[in-house]
Deep mutational scan, measured.
Amino acid sequence: MIVFVRFNSSHGFPVEVDSDTSIFQLKEVVAKRQGVPADQLRVIFAGKELRNDWTVQNCDLDQQSIVHIVQRPWRKGQEMNATGGDDPRNAAGGCEREPQSLTRVDLSSSVLPGDSVGLAVILHTDSRKDSPPAGSPAGRSIYNSFYVYCKGPCQRVQPGKLRVQCSTCRQATLTLTQGPSCWDDVLIPNRMSGECQSPHCPGTSAEFFFKCGAHPTSDKETSVALHLIATNSRNITCITCTDVRSPVLVFQCNSRHVICLDCFHLYCVTRLNDRQFVHDPQLGYSLPCVAGCPNSLIKELHHFRILGEEQYNRYQQYGAEECVLQMGGVLCPRPGCGAGLLPEPDQRKVTCEGGNGLGCGFAFCRECKEAYHEGECSAVFEASGTTTQAYRVDERAAEQARWEAASKETIKKTTKPCPRCHVPVEKNGGCMHMKCPQPQCRLEWCWNCGCEWNRVCMGDHWFDV
């Protein structure tokens, strides 16, 4: 396979590697080409510095992935760790964990309700045991953590790749202090920090972006993250068709209702045909949960890209028209025109101005929308079919299609509260000796007794199943 190397943020060049090629071997190839010592090179990928003893497969490097290699003399205490030698983080029983690669970060837990604080980093599902597709590297999971809308060759929703760059020099040479644990960490600028490894760059702020994971991409090709779309790892039924499908869209209502993408497309087109989208002054033209839940309008309007190009163009047109109407304007009634106009409040005669090729020149009556006339309008008909009709959803289907309910059931079956801080902690095999993952707590306690870890627990039921 081919990976592209950008040395000291210059133009990239291809390097041929195998899945079992080590990072140090990659350094040696680059060092020979650039005429520099291999031990002064640092390989940066997806916000993480890659260790010498890791392989291309370990690092989730795919065909035509772009890695950054910078030349920086080692500072005291760094060289041993980078070589894969006596790194205290690798000691058996050590409590410190390697910062998780962005290629394996899962933010789907952050669609849980606000009262489930902490689960994004504490609760991990076991539903990723799908067998890898044919042709994928051994052991590589097909679980997708992110979804994007690819405006490039795909023109559809695709699995996405999370990447990070330095907000100062805009190069992907920043190593994160810690990985993101929720969508806010990724979507809110300057929320996460790190250290830029580019020479002479003092940058410390992280800037995240997404790429389409279905095809090789260049540095400049980015895609918009659709953070309401998630892999259906909890096997929730769709609120409309009641099938279990994946991926799904999880509405931001209190129940976190789930809808499959085909039904979401149908829901949007139906509402669009009836012009029953909601115009929100802050958000724009949007839709609420299909069950009509309060405070559930979709905030990231790129989710409506699921409509496809033709329907999305209609959505944008109707949204612009609705904006004009909300501002007190009118639409030209001549067939084939429909231009938005903003006449004076007491102006009865409205002319669709033909300047700049935008208007048709038609003069019409503001009251009856017919060709302009003197005197009273002959008839004014009330528009028919403008009443909002509820999208029919079966109550039982709505009850079963809740992301929140599956989460709470998982928590109930696989977790116990920490005796000190009461945060839910998952036990997935292993011994009875637990350690609270909350940095402010870190209590060592017994899963069996529910009390602080002691010699009695150690001698009596340390390794009970």
Results as ranks from 00 to 15, higher is better:
F4C: 06
G12Y: 05
P14C: 03
L26F: 07
A31S: 11
Q40L: 06
L41Q: 04
E49C: 02
R51G: 05
N52G: 06
D53L: 02
D62A: 14
Q64M: 12
V67R: 00
M80A: 13
T103Y: 09
D106A: 11
P113K: 13
S116P: 12
I122R: 14
H124S: 14
K129E: 13
P132N: 11
P132R: 12
P133T: 10
G135H: 12
N144W: 06
Q155R: 15
Q155D: 09
G160R: 01
C166T: 00
A172F: 07
L174P: 05
L176Q: 03
G179Q: 14
P180H: 01
I188F: 10
P189S: 07
G203C: 02
F209A: 13
H215Q: 02
T217E: 15
S218V: 10
D219A: 10
K220R: 10
K220F: 09
S223T: 11
I236T: 09
C238M: 01
T240L: 11
C241R: 00
D243G: 10
R245P: 02
R245F: 03
V248A: 03
Q252N: 12
R256C: 04
F264H: 01
L266K: 04
R271H: 14
Q276L: 10
H279P: 09
L297H: 05
K299G: 06
E300Y: 06
L301H: 08
I306C: 06
E310S: 06
Q317I: 07
Q317D: 07
Y318D: 00
G319S: 10
C323T: 14
P335I: 09
G336M: 10
G338D: 05
G338N: 09
G355L: 09
A363W: 06
R366E: 03
C368H: 02
K369E: 06
A371D: 13
H373G: 02
E376S: 13
E376I: 11
A379L: 11
E382P: 09
E382M: 14
S384D: 08
T388Q: 12
Q389A: 15
Q389S: 15
A390P: 14
A390N: 14
D394R: 05
E395T: 11
A401N: 03
A405Q: 09
S407W: 07
K408W: 08
K408G: 10
T410P: 08
T415K: 10
H422F: 10
P424I: 09
V425K: 06
W445Q: 02
C451I: 15
